[in-house]
């Protein structure tokens, strides 16, 4: 298998850019668009997803040999749903504000195709060590895109980043950026830019 030749460092680094879950693989777009109306929400969502991804990857790569192939998807989903419940209750108990802002999108981490996708494509075929590295890489890759999207949308839509005012008083906020259309437009431009950067790197 070609994958075996990947160095351990690459397993982490690939998630950051080359196989970035959002920009390249287009996975997990729903939370990416929905919660990035502020930088804080982007970070929180990114970290919550990373936690679920990492824990599920560890558990699934440990038990990968005893899961019957026919019911593997259902088993993965139960594992993921368990960790999502943990995150949901944890956030509700310790950071009620964030939990309220993210709303239904916390329990919806369970249907984030990024997580199920990594279990199917990676954790179910690789040992625990590699799965942890892959989970960390993909998680960070997801988090930085969400954070950057959140920062840009918050900056243009509310003139602040992490709720700290940046723009001068005279700046007219672009309300549309924190509304649904702004999410689609920003992500579209992001994807276009990443294609451009990739092509320039190849040449």
């Amino acid at each position: 298998m070609a994958k075996k030749s990947n160095s351990l460092t690459y397993e982490v680094v690939k998630g950051l850019w080359n196989e970035n879950p959002v920009l390249i693989q287009l996975l997990g777009l729903c939370p990416t668009l929905a919660v990035t109306n502020s930088a804080v929400n982007g970070v929180a969502m990114g970290l919550a997803t990373t936690f679920v991804l990492l824990c599920s990857s560890i558990l699934i790569s440990v038990i990968r040999k005893i899961i019957p192939a026919q019911v593997r998807i259902a088993s993965y989903i139960v594992v993921i749903a368990t960790f999502v419940t943990v995150v949901d209750k944890f956030l509700a108990a310790y950071t009620p504000d964030i939990s309220k802002a993210l709303g239904a999108f916390i329990p919806l981490i369970v249907v984030n195709c990024l997580i199920l996708g990594r279990q199917e494509a990676f954790a179910s075929k690789n040992n625990v060590g590699r799965s942890i590295l892959d989970g960390i890489g993909m998680g960070i890759g997801f988090t930085w895109v969400l954070t950057l999207l959140g920062m840009i949308r918050e900056l243009l839509g509310e003139g602040s980043i992490f709720a700290i005012s940046i723009m001068p008083e005279s700046f007219n906020t672009w309300l549309v950026m924190i509304l649904p259309p702004g999410a689609f437009l920003t992500l579209g431009i992001f994807i276009g830019l990443s294609n451009w950067i990739n092509e320039r790197r190849v040449n």
Partner: peptide
């Protein structure tokens, strides 16, 4: 369509305009 926006990029931007219309 500009080369780099083919596929997902332009789809997102069209979706943005649709979302604007639905608002």
């Amino acid at each position: 369509v500009p080369k780099y926006f083919k596929g997902a990029g332009i789809t997102m931007i069209v979706a943005g305009s649709l979302a604007l219309a639905f608002m």
